[in-house]
Amino acid sequence: MRFLQKGIISAAVFSALTLLSSFGAQASTLDTVKQRGSLICGVSNGITGFSIADEKGAWSGFDVDFCRAVASAIFGDATKVQFVPVKADERFAALKDNKFDLLSRNSTWSFSNEVEQGLLFAGVTYYDGQGFLVSKKRKVTSALELDGSKICVKNGTNSEANVADYFKSNRMKFEPIRFETMKEIIEAYQANKCDVISSDVSQLYAERLGLAKPNENAILADIISKEPLGPAVRQGDDQWLNLVKWVNYAMINAEELGITKANVAQAKQSQKPAVRRLIGAEGDIGKQLGLSPDWALNIVKNVGNYGETLEKNVGGKSKLGIARGLNQLWTMGGIQYAPPLR
């Protein structure tokens, strides 16, 4: 698209989605977004802590805040984003069909989701994984103590296979109790038909809130599968992939550098080169992404750094209360590690 005359672009590109899709993968997503004046984000409707709309239509959640971070980077304004709820089985087709600019919908970065679908993941915003929920009364502190348990799993998912692998490799036995829906699993667990529920940890925390006595149930520290969740974009637009990727990295780097929503206004006085580069007081990182120099400053100012966003939506400051675990910074006991902004 860059080889075309600017006049042609502005004449040809309109905010209407139908036109957008007719240009297909050739269009620069960033230019399209800028001309439209807002970002369109594909999200899930109904995952507590990650992406949910209230009765007034106000969106909240970790995946939603990532969209707001991208909007802040482009427009300096977190509100310039439209959310498009999309079902799990339609999400990748909808992205390829230009229904939105970015898919931020707790999607696992796996070979099939990336290569087979013909998409690109821009990084890992949240390391999820399969775990176990068990009553505290059992005084279990490790999944290795679950030998002989009756474990509720969702039928037709990888959950049962993951549990089987884990138990087999640790020479333990279990009895799978299969259900079609999470609702049935919760009912079975509360009726003592199984002693353990196994599913992705983020889901276990959300489901625990719905139990009669949430506090009497623990989610074990063990993780038995890899579920790296992250935003996905279409192939063929490297500029856009880079932008989305570095929005995530900027948020992680901001946390590592101690730049927070509360102190970002004072960050300009910092003498640390890494801080000065991130907020745009030095260098031209923003320009190289097609953005203004204060792109990352605006992310932290409007949305927060990585840890702030995580804690607010799913961590200790949310009702979910998920321990940071793998999502802690690499310097603090986790594996969140962003390449440096230089």
Partner: peptide
Amino acid sequence: LAGPFERQIVFFRTTEAPGTIV
């Protein structure tokens, strides 16, 4: 204490030996 400040076992990677306080 209830919620995140309740004493609990969590996933924690570190190069510090077991028994260390962090």
